[in-house]
């Protein structure tokens, strides 16, 4: 889900998003972070801090942080588009 939103914001194909690749290599900036998190909240009802996407450098790191905080349940399907 996160990947799909990220792909739409960065205007690339979801399959091109590598969960391990640092966000800054995609050119994700702080405005994008706010937009992506806003979309995730709108569509999935999960409230996230946009800083999460800046403090954690890749999708893998974000998911690990969310699991640590108990914001999402462990299920790899959530990380797939």
């Amino acid at each position: 889900m996160l990947i799909a939103e990220l792909a739409s914001i960065l205007q690339v194909d979801a399959s091109e998003i590598d969960p391990a690749k640092p966000f800054d290599e995609y050119g994700l900036d702080s405005t994008d972070a706010v937009v992506v998190v806003g979309l995730v909240e709108e569509r999935m009802g999960i409230e996230l801090e946009p800083e999460l996407l800046l403090r954690n450098r890749s999708i893998d790191e974000v998911i690990a942080a969310l699991l640590r905080e108990g914001k999402v349940k462990s299920s790899r399907s959530q990380a797939k588009p």
């Binding site: 702080s30 937009v35 998190v37 806003g38 909240e41």
Partner: peptide, 8 residues
């Protein structure tokens, strides 16, 4: 700052 859209 980098804050949620709802705050904006």
């Amino acid at each position: 700052d980098v804050v949620p859209i709802s705050l904006f």
